[in-house]
């Protein structure tokens, strides 16, 4: 019993010393790492301050104005160029050249296609596409594009159509 106790004590001592040794070095390593991180942090914060000052310097209104006058074809904003959002008409009050359909079966009231300035064919309007645009696909908003056949063939609701074509 005495012998095993001795061995146990020696083994324990060895293990604890080994553990302590490693712990001490691990702590030292971690502390060094912390200091390194903090130094890097400090360096970065300093760099950020320099960059903030530099940014503020480079974006001086004077410098921006000078550059804008030299490179951009812009003029000071005039009051007539400013509009309120409520003065902008809703898209549906404008003639929609293309309509978005959620279902192909529902006929949507839409204005009569404008008379085309030239004899446009569907192929001319969509030169690169063989298939007709499918329902649910926004159509190109060019006024010369004729409505696809499935819309032209659909009978519009008379009252709505009359209301739409009035203006």
């Amino acid at each position: 019993m005495s012998r095993s106790l001795t061995f146990f004590a020696v083994a324990l001592t060895a293990a604890v010393s080994w553990g302590l040794y490693h712990l001490a070095y691990e702590v030292q390593r971690l502390e060094d790492e912390l200091i390194d991180y903090n130094r890097a942090l400090l360096r970065d914060r300093e760099a950020m301050q320099v960059l903030a000052a530099e940014w503020s310097y480079l974006t001086r209104p004077e410098a921006l104005q000078e550059r804008a006058l030299r490179h951009l074809d812009m003029r000071p904003l005039l009051p007539v160029q400013i509009a309120r959002i409520e003065h902008i008409p809703f898209a549906e009050t404008l003639a929609p050249a293309g309509a978005v359909l959620s279902s192909g079966d529902i006929p949507l009231p839409r204005p009569r296609p404008r008379p085309l300035p030239f004899a446009a064919t569907r192929e001319a309007a969509y030169p690169n596409s063989q298939a007709a645009p499918r329902a649910g696909t926004p159509l190109p908003s060019s006024p010369v594009a004729p409505a696809p056949p499935f819309l032209q063939s659909a009978a519009p609701v008379p009252a709505l159509a009359a209301a739409r074509s009035a203006p």
Binding site: E31, I35, N38, R39, L42, Q49, A52, A53, S56
Partner: peptide
């Protein structure tokens, strides 16, 4: 470790910056 551990609370410089109402830097210490 203590000296640099509190780096967050310690500013890099000892004089505060001055900014305009939109936060543009008007004066800073480097």
């Amino acid at each position: 470790a203590t000296l640099v551990a509190k780096v967050d609370q310690f500013p890099v410089v000892d004089r505060a910056a001055i900014v305009d109402r939109n936060g543009t830097l008007l004066a800073t210490s480097l």
